[in-house]
Write a protein that binds this DNA or RNA. Structure first.
Length: 452
RNA sequence: GUGGGUAUAGCGUAGUUGGUUAACGCGUCAGAUUGUGGUUCUGAAGACCGUCGGUUCGAGUCCGACUAUCCACCCCA
């Protein structure tokens, strides 16, 4: 009986790794362009970190954490999200003292014990950014603009930005009471879950999907009418800045983040092509979090972007991914003597900076050619007794079928020239000219090419 | 945690009102006169039909339970 992967996890197989690499590349390039630097923190943290930051009543903390007790009394939790650990690391290492604004990004796996569904996994990968030290709406705009830049860089066109402000704790309390007042008369009509939520967290009533609750919620008071002067001005300024960038957004009073630490600006980028779990990116401001975790009160904000949802959206929109790299050369030896030579030749070619393979199964020529074709090798060199005896072999261009003879001792130089020619011929050369041009055009023969 | 769908070779599928050796495509491997790929042709390997139990002379096919998986609620990335 084979052991199977844990529920809600996925194997990212070689055939799709190119998609992940492309996305990771796009994402980190954009982040660095905006002045964010990468940070890497542990996959597990003390459980208390998440209880304090994410909130002890949130779903994530109450029912979705993977928590283990270690040998001592400590309990640890596999990170369910990125912000808490990153803020912890910044505080612990004094990074906050290096001057504001501090801007970091990360690409990390996260873990939540949820029931898997389309776009929802128990292990999922997230691209996240955090910015600390600015209370300005320009900071909010930077974060949103970065997310928009990333999505744009991935080629997405149909992802909507939903924007809201949930105010500071003071305006939120006022708003909560207003909601309770509004819903109280309809108490008996609400669905059971909403009825419960009325007391605990009335803001959750707003995005209930039950038609009855939806109908009742239609005329409910709106948070933005209850913002204090400071919060309202902040939100208005942010909207003005976004307008200046020509970033389209939908004012959505229903955006209510489930993590307790959010204040003021909250936003989601939502795709409608990937099923019910369409939030590709979610984030906002969390001005109270850093002091909650023991630091000096510092305004901060950030977002998390689900990478498998991002890829799903790209697939649903028909985005192209760059193809995986293919070998430059396959060497097809025939017989033991040739295989020995092929091994050395292959090694020399690799040390010259190319991707090369040779037969290590001992197959006949025909299967080797099929294999070379399958792995999309750009060139093939057949090595048999004839070549070894004469010291002369041929390089075959697999795209054109052309063959060119060369002396074995000049192999690397010849191969380099042919490869350049081929790449320019297919139009790839222009892009690659710089990097490849630097590679050695004429290396010493493999026999005398000792390793350091 | 609550619903609903699905379960046949590595992958994608067919399997007639229950009836003998479970079929096909892709993939894999090997051949098609001397040492050259993609196309074509031929052949081979590969499935205890998710698991357990029931109905029946007989179950891939009907029934039940369990498990897995997918989708939805919930929640979120």
């Amino acid at each position: 009986m084979l052991i199977k992967r844990p529920k809600g996890t996925q194997d990212i197989l070689p055939s799709v790794v190119n998609k992940w690499k492309a996305v990771e590349e796009t994402v980190s390039q954009a982040a660095e362009q905006f002045g964010f630097r990468e940070i890497r923190t542990p996959v597990f943290e003390e459980t208390g970190l998440y209880v304090r930051s994410v909130g002890d009543t949130s779903d994530v903390v109450t029912k979705e954490m993977y928590t283990v007790s270690s040998k001592g009394d400590d309990t640890f939790t596999l990170r369910p999200e990125g912000t808490a650990g990153v803020i912890r690391a910044m505080l612990e290492n004094g990074i906050m003292n290096e001057g504001f604004p501090r801007k970091v990004y990360y690409i990390i796996p996260c873990y939540r014990h949820e029931k898997p569904q389309a776009g929802r996994y128990r292990e999922f990968r997230q691209f996240g950014v955090e910015m600390a030290g600015s209370a300005s709406p320009y900071a909010d705009a930077e974060i949103i603009l970065l997310a928009a830049t990333v999505l744009d860089g991935c080629g997405l066109e149909n992802v909507e930005l939903h924007l809201n402000s949930i105010g500071c704790p003071e305006c939120r309390e006022k708003y909560r009471s207003a909601l309770r007042e509004y819903f109280e008369p309809h108490k008996d009509e609400l669905c059971p879950t909403c009825n419960e939520r009325l007391g605990k967290n009335p803001m959750r009533l707003l995005d209930c999907k039950s038609p009855i609750c939806k109908e009742i919620a239609k005329d409910a008071p709106i948070i933005t009418d209850y913002l204090c002067d400071g919060c309202r001005e902040h939100f208005e300024k942010l909207r003005k800045i976004l307008d200046g960038y020509e970033i389209k957004y939908i004012l959505d009073p229903k955006i209510v983040r489930g993590l307790d630490y959010y204040t003021r600006t909250v936003f989601e980028f939502i795709s409608n092509g990937i099923g019910a779990q369409g939030t590709v990116c979610g984030g906002g401001r969390y001005d109270g979090l850093i002091s909650e975790l023991g630091g000096q009160p510092t305004p901060a904000l950030g977002f998390g972007m689900g990478l498998e949802r991002l890829i799903l959206t790209m697939e649903s929109e028909g985005c192209e991914f760059p193809p995986a790299k293919t070998p430059d050369l396959y060497i097809a030896p025939m017989g033991e003597r040739a295989q020995e030579k092929a091994a050395l030749l292959c090694d020399a070619v690799r040390r010259a900076g190319y991707a090369a393979e040779f037969d290590i199964i001992g197959r006949g020529l025909k299967p080797q050619m099929r294999y070379a074709d399958k792995i999309k090798a750009k060139f093939v060199c057949v090595l048999g007794d004839n070549e070894l005896d004469s010291g002369e072999a041929k390089l075959k261009n697999m795209r054109t079928g052309d063959e060119k003879a060369f002396k074995l001792e000049e192999f690397i130089g010849e191969f380099h020239n042919l490869l350049i020619e081929e790449l320019f011929g297919t139009g790839l050369g222009d892009a690659l000219a710089d990097s490849i041009g630097d590679l050695p055009a004429n290396t010493v023969p493999p026999e005398t090419n000792g390793r350091n």
